[in-house]
Design a protein around this nucleic acid. Structure first.
Lengths: 249, 249
DNA sequence: CGGGAGCTTTGATCTGTGTCAACGTGAAGT
DNA sequence: ACTTCACGTTGACACAGATCAAAGCTCCCG
């Protein structure tokens, strides 16, 4: 059921592909959201190239020169920033239809790392082209602004997690957020596989992996979720939500 | 030396004023950064109105409908988000030349509160107008994208603070960041007055006010800074930087 | 000039999460 | 089937920062 893919050999095991937005089943979720049929047709040339990124490989690294943003076609990524001493902060997990690379616009260099957590494909959107099309298609311009703004709002949510929530609140918020995003993509709201390790979850939530593991176990004991390794089932979403709204003395 | 200001009476104690970007001494720092003289002239009509916000008043609140972004002409703001139970996360402190309100683009409503920490003036930039001008003036378009991107990068820095740094590292990073921003505005790199309370600093850094106070005292004892109430003097910037790069076992 | 409100400092104690350590588990390869 | 390796779980203990409490400093207002 997936659109036609023509693999072409390229350097370092990544494969380039062609694909038009107008044919893409993510068009309602991704960059073209809200564009008319005509307008989507106009931006079909915007994505000239798709790139495959194997699990564990970097899409880009902090310091790489910024040329393009990337729309995730399939797969799952994390972005992180590193302190000189090696401490890592995962700044986000991104899934199909989400955009990577907007961090690089401001300085013309990427400022974080983007790593595939499973074999993935991204649509390469040369940024200069995007700005050109944006000047012609105001719906595209506006939607791009919305996406950047939402990234800022998302980041505020993470600050809230990190700044004021306790460990179990953080994990509950994390699970509910994943559930909601999987739902928007047509997957089960209650059952999914985590693509990231406990350590990566911990780094995102500002916790150590042991604390994440204990919180999972606690949720399991309390019947809120069922956990088997990376497989998660949400048994009591309302219970998880209650954790968030109930303030401890 | 300040440009002409014409006060006009308006509701709720705020005053509207007119001011052209081409006359503004912040033009090298603010939205018009990098525009040619001609281009700055073109956007002079973009800012139709200036607004005075008294200390303690809101420029906007979460939930307010989004119409405009704001360039700070003078003064100092904080932005924060609230949890239902009242816990507050300060997401940033903004000073002259910085932009407020980009959080609202994505949902057409503001998603945080912006509060003046001292009597302030902002230039109101109607967002629809900004998008229109952006389609004509590509340097403006590009610079606006850079500003949004930098906001994202800034937020990643805060996540790093909150996620992986210890209390004294957070405060050191905070002070160095303020120092650098004051410097960029022509103020002393080593001596300034904090506009925010210990509680607000704590909320920004994910710490309690007592912890912030103790960290200030500790820096003082160690000769890194001198603190008298809100007046801060940085005595050993290198020492503060060292705190950041030295990892504790 | 006195009183009070808001903010800050400092001390004593508590606690959630980190740290360290040992063991369990599942997947991949030989 | 056995080994290996990366990842996950669990327990015991430590500690950074939270919490609780009291007192000090400034500035404003009457």
């Amino acid at each position: 059921m997936r659109a036609q893919i023509i693999p072409i050999a390229v350097p370092n095991l990544q494969t380039e592909l062609r694909e038009a937005c107008s044919q893409c089943n993510l068009r309602e979720l991704c960059l073209p959201m809200g564009l008319s049929g005509d307008e989507i047709g106009q931006i079909d040339q915007l994505v000239e190239v798709r790139r495959r990124i194997q699990r564990g490989q970097h899409l880009y690294r902090g310091g790489d020169s910024f040329e393009a943003i990337y729309a995730i076609k399939t797969g799952f990524f994390k972005t992180d920033v590193l302190l000189e001493d090696g401490r890592e902060q995962v700044t986000g997990f991104q899934m199909a239809g989400e955009i990577l690379g907007m961090d690089g616009i401001g300085s013309e260099k990427h400022t974080c790392n983007a790593v595939a957590l499973e074999d993935s494909e991204v649509c390469v959107i040369p940024f200069a082209d995007l700005e050109n099309y944006s000047r012609e298609i105001s719906a595209l311009q506006h939607h791009f602004h919305k996406m950047m703004s939402r990234e800022i709002v998302r980041d505020h949510g993470v600050m809230m997690l990190l700044g004021v929530m306790r460990a179990e609140e953080r994990l509950a918020a994390f699970l509910l957020n994943l559930s909601q995003r999987f739902t928007a993509r047509g997957y089960s709201p209650t059952e999914f596989n985590l693509r990231m390790t406990r350590n990566e979850i911990g780094s995102y939530l500002g916790l150590k992996l042991e604390t994440v593991s204990r919180a999972f176990s606690r949720f399991h004991e309390e019947g809120l979720i069922s956990v088997h390794q990376k497989h998660i089932q949400i048994l009591d979403a309302a219970g998880l939500k209650k954790l968030l709204s109930e303030r401890r003395a």
